[in-house]
Simulated scan of single mutants.
Amino acid sequence: MLTISSLWIPFTVVAALGQVARNAMQRSLTGPLGTWGATNIRFLFGFPFSILFFALVMVATGDPLPWPPAVFWPWLLLGALSQIVATGLMLLAMNERSFVVTTAYLKTEAIQTAIFGFVFLGDHLTLLKVIAILIATIGVVITALRPGGEKGFAELKPTIIGLVAAAAFALSAIGFRGAIIAVPGVSFVTASSYTLVFGLFVQTLVLSIYLLLRAPGVLKAILGLWRPSMLAGFMGAFASQFWFLAFALTAAANVRTLALIEVLFAQGVAYYSFKQPISPRELSGIVLIVIGVALLIAA
């Protein structure tokens, strides 16, 4: 039977599923909107849904309106601004390499999150957890070496973009976890939803102002594609809600390591939607991911 402290496991699984769906939707919008236009989709159209989620949470929990201390805001800005950079780089990398390979580069985030979490938040990691993170990450790298993928790893530009995006996502996870645990006097659900609302508000404001100044036609194009954008925004807010719930309950490194199952979901998308076969090398990588994730949960 799941305890409250172990709810981060199903929360992370749900978030990973939602994120794969959102990434695929954003990728399809990169062509007509450009990298930053597609990036703004998840924030601009996700923000209204985050308010709805927060309202439902407040009614369900009966918590008072949170009033966080000053330390909440630097953590929030670190999370929000790092995620803007990370999302844009992710979409840029997806234009350079395949969907699955890009996802694999991004999943080096687990190791970087463990390091940043230890340095900035003092998150404790046991030896077994460190081993689990390493095994799962090695599995991700092996999975990325699909037929013809060896050439892709020799291309320096998409590799660097993917790794820097992973570092930005890692800093984002640390920033949001720092903000969530700084909210006093309410349940972890309320703290998570509250942080999500303000995080998406900052991201929407910053990126919309940037597009208004640099590419006003993109904002008009976004509004013209409101139907697919609305769905991508909902999936983005939905996935983020569950990421934040997981961050509230355990170290960010644990969440981001379990999130490596996203690579398995991406493989499923590639196999069933794009008819890309799974090679023996990819299969061996998947086995390592499963072993690493199993060790993490056991730890």
Rank of each mutant, 00 (worst) to 15 (best):
T39G: 06
P184M: 05
A168K: 00
V197I: 10
E262N: 11
V287G: 12
A93P: 02
I261M: 15
V57Q: 06
P32G: 09
S273F: 15
A55T: 12
P228E: 02
K129M: 14
G152S: 14
L56Q: 01
V100I: 10
L76W: 11
P64S: 08
G79R: 13
G175W: 10
A191N: 03
I138C: 11
P147D: 08
I133V: 15
F265I: 15
S240E: 05
I180F: 01
L77T: 09
S98C: 06
L156K: 14
S240P: 00
W8M: 02
I142M: 15
G149L: 04
T30I: 09
A21I: 13
V287F: 15
M25P: 00
I261T: 12
I9H: 02
G122A: 03
P277N: 07
Q112N: 01
L91P: 07
L76K: 12
G224R: 14
Q241A: 15
I115Q: 04
F238M: 03
L163H: 11
I4D: 05
L77Q: 08
E262D: 13
I174T: 07
A215W: 00
V202G: 04
F153V: 12
F43K: 05
L245Y: 08
I4K: 03
R281T: 13
L89C: 08
P280L: 12
A252T: 05
S5Q: 10
A251S: 13
T195A: 13
F116G: 05
S273G: 14
F45A: 14
Y210F: 15
L17M: 14
K129W: 00
A251M: 01
A93L: 04
V59W: 13
A60W: 10
A237E: 00
L127C: 00
M235A: 09
M25Q: 14
L156V: 14
P10D: 02
R42S: 14
Q19S: 06
I51F: 15
R214P: 00
A266H: 01
R146S: 15
I180S: 05
I84N: 10
G199L: 03
I209E: 00
N23E: 10
K275H: 15
K220E: 06
G233T: 08
V255I: 08
I261E: 10
G62P: 07
P277S: 11
V202L: 09
G224Q: 13
T61N: 02
Q19L: 12
A154Q: 14
N95D: 15
A253F: 08
L52H: 02
I41K: 06
I84P: 07
V140A: 11
I160T: 10
S208R: 03
A270C: 08
L121Q: 09
W67L: 11
I209W: 10
V85M: 14
L258V: 10
S192N: 02
I41M: 10
V140T: 11
L7Y: 01
L33W: 09
A237H: 01
N40F: 04
P147C: 07
M235Q: 05
Q241D: 00
G34C: 07
P216Q: 02
F169E: 02
A173F: 13
V164F: 09
L171H: 04
G139Q: 08
A38R: 03
V189A: 12
A215V: 00
F49E: 09
A15E: 02
A179F: 06
I84W: 11
